[in-house]
């Protein structure tokens, strides 16, 4: 049975010079435990799509269904890991990770225990009392992932979480994320503009068109895990995916230059 389903999602914005169609009739299903990557050129509406799944933005048309039931508002069952981490600078690392549990009314001892478990999983136990600004970008993203996992969501939504990282840190987090996915069997929807990253991580890659975004093609990635970004099947598949994406990127670039 599908865990997450989108039916005919259409989203537009009213701008000064008329209506801007961002998402055009997007339908997709994600199976329980599946790792789906959505790739598309910058500015194509990937984040908007993720926000709609999270319930942080409303589409004009279409529905989001979780376990077959329509969802409207945002809720921790579809938990977002934001591009910049979105950690709270006024809280220490441990308090950041237990924030959602505190909101959910979990008592202190219990929620600290859960938070510490996920910090350990992300190799951050030593930093539970640090403040956000004392962490490197890679550590911040690991805290953000720990914070997401601590809520035990039905679906983990990840919005280019590794975009700001250096290559080595990113490789390491690719390994960790696959490891976590294998351990927890979480359903993950991961947005990126990095084609190789998608080929490395996903069970299935969806390529979006540029403005309005619709699903252009999907690729099944039936390769053994854990994968590494330089594995030949990752590199080869990434080439095929990139060929599909190239026209869209060119359109995005030319439109952005004209503007």
């Amino acid at each position: 049975m599908s865990k997450l389903e989108l039916r005919g999602i259409t989203k537009y914005y009213e701008t000064g010079n008329g209506r801007l169609l961002a998402l055009n009739n997007i339908s997709l299903t994600v199976d329980d435990g599946e790792f789906v990557c959505i790739v598309g050129p910058s500015g194509c509406g990937k984040t908007t799509l993720l926000n709609i799944i999270a319930g942080l933005e409303k589409p004009q048309e279409g529905q989001v269904l979780l376990d077959g039931r329509q969802v409207n508002d945002t809720s921790p069952d579809r938990l977002m890991v934001f591009q910049e981490g979105a950690l709270f600078p006024w809280l220490a690392v441990l308090q950041n990770v237990e924030f959602g549990l505190k909101i959910a009314g979990v008592e202190k001892g219990k929620r600290q225990e859960i938070a510490r478990r996920y910090l350990e999983m992300m190799h951050l136990s030593k930093f539970e009392n640090s403040y956000v600004h004392q962490l490197s970008t890679g550590m911040k993203q690991r805290v953000a992932i720990a914070r997401g996992l601590a809520m035990d969501p039905q679906v983990l939504l990840m919005d280019e979480p590794f975009a700001a990282l250096d290559a080595q840190t990113r490789d390491m987090l690719h390994a960790e994320l696959q490891n976590i996915h294998a351990k927890t069997r979480k359903t993950i929807v991961f947005v990126t503009h990095n084609v190789r990253e998608s080929a490395c991580l996903a069970d299935r890659v969806l390529v979006l068109t540029y403005r309005p975004a619709s699903i252009k093609r999907e690729f099944l990635m039936n390769f053994p895990r854990p994968r590494q970004i330089e594995d030949h099947f990752v590199v080869d598949t990434a080439k095929v995916i990139f060929a599909e994406l190239k026209d869209e990127v060119q359109r995005a670039v030319s439109e952005q230059i004209v503007r």
Binding site: L56, T74, P76, L79, F82, F88, F99, G100, I103, A104
Partner: peptide, 19 residues
């Protein structure tokens, strides 16, 4: 982003405001 993250984690109303 802070507000979205907090709302996503279930914070509303007074708790969104004070926390």
């Amino acid at each position: 982003t802070y507000i979205n993250a907090a709302r996503n984690m279930g914070a509303r109303g007074a708790r969104l405001f004070f926390f």
